[in-house]
C-alpha cells in the first residue's frame, strides 16, 4: 500500500514543479486537475478497510478537483481570452528553483519531525508541506487572477494530503465542508475573473490596487 501511495505522492511533487515551470495557463489547469484526481485516490489507499465515508470523500474529491473545478476555470479562461502568465514576478526558472528548494527542505524537514511510526515511511508529510509551500510561491509570484486560483488550489491540495493523516479522527462532514468551501470559493472567483476582465480589460491583479480609494 505504502508503495502505491508513495508513487502517487512523488508524482504530485513532480506536478508541483511542472506547475511552477509552465506559463501556459491551460496546461497548468489540466495539471492541477490531474493532481486533484490523483489525490482523490489516496483515501482509498490510506485505509485498509473501505467505509462509506472514505469512498464518499474519495469520489467527491475526484469529481470536484478533477472535473468540476477545472471545467469552471477553463470556462473562465476561455471567456477572459488569456493564454499565458506573461510577466510573473519571478521568472519561470527561478520559481522552479525556489520550488525545488522548498521540496528539498520539506523532504529533509519531515525526516526530523517526530511522527507516528506508520507515517514515517510514507511521504505524506513532506509532500503536503512541499505542496503548501509551492502554493504560496505561486500565490506570491503570479499576478493573473487565474494563476492565483491555481496557487490556491495547489495549497489546498497540500492541506488535503495533510488531512489524510487525520482521516480517522476527522469526521466526513468536515472534509466535505472543506471541499464545498473550495468549490464555492473557486466558483465565485471565476465569476469575479470575468468581471475584472470586463472592468479593467486585463486580469492583472495589480490593477485591483486602484480600487483602494
Amino acid at each position: 500500500m505504502t508503495d502505491a501511495l508513495n508513487a502517487i505522492l512523488v508524482i504530485v511533487l513532480v506536478m508541483n514543479l511542472f506547475v511552477l515551470g509552465t506559463s501556459r495557463i491551460l496546461a497548468v489547469i489540466n495539471t492541477v486537475a490531474t493532481q486533484g484526481a490523483l489525490l482523490g485516490v489516496i483515501p482509498l489507499l490510506v485505509h485498509t478497510h473501505l467505509t462509506i465515508s472514505v469512498v464518499l470523500t474519495s469520489v467527491a474529491a475526484i469529481v470536484l478537483k478533477g472535473v468540476v473545478i477545472p471545467s469552471i476555470m477553463i470556462r473562465a479562461l476561455r471567456d477572459a481570452e488569456i493564454k499565458r502568465e506573461v510577466e510573473p514576478l519571478i521568472g519561470l526558472l527561478p520559481s522552479i528553483m525556489l520550488g525545488a528548494l522548498a521540496t528539498a527542505f520539506a523532504l529533509l524537514f519531515a525526516g526530523e519531525l517526530p511522527l507516528a511510526g506508520e507515517h514515517q515511511s510514507a511521504l505524506l508529510v513532506p509532500t503536503s508541506i512541499a505542496s503548501v509551500l509551492v502554493g504560496f510561491i505561486i500565490l506570491t509570484s503570479r499576478f493573473k487572477a487565474l494563476s492565483q486560483v491555481i496557487g490556491y488550489l495547489v495549497l489546498e491540495n497540500g492541506i488535503f494530503i495533510f488531512g489524510m493523516l487525520l482521516i480517522d479522527a476527522m469526521p466526513l462532514l468536515v472534509e466535505m465542508g472543506v471541499l464545498l468551501d473550495l468549490f464555492v470559493g473557486i466558483f465565485v472567483i471565476c465569476i469575479i475573473v470575468n468581471h475584472i476582465n470586463r472592468a479593467f480589460s486585463s486580469l492583472d491583479t495589480r490593477l485591483l490596487a486602484s480600487l483602494k480609494e
Binding site: L13, V14, G21, L92, I96, A100, A104, L107, L123
Partner: peptide
C-alpha cells in the same frame, strides 16, 4: 525553454537521491 525541462529532470533525480540518503 528546453533547459527548464532538463533542469527539472535533474531536480527529480536529485529528489530521488535526497529521499534515499536523508
Amino acid at each position: 525553454h528546453v533547459p527548464y525541462l532538463l533542469i527539472a529532470a535533474t531536480l527529480f533525480c536529485s529528489f530521488g537521491f535526497l529521499l534515499l540518503v536523508r
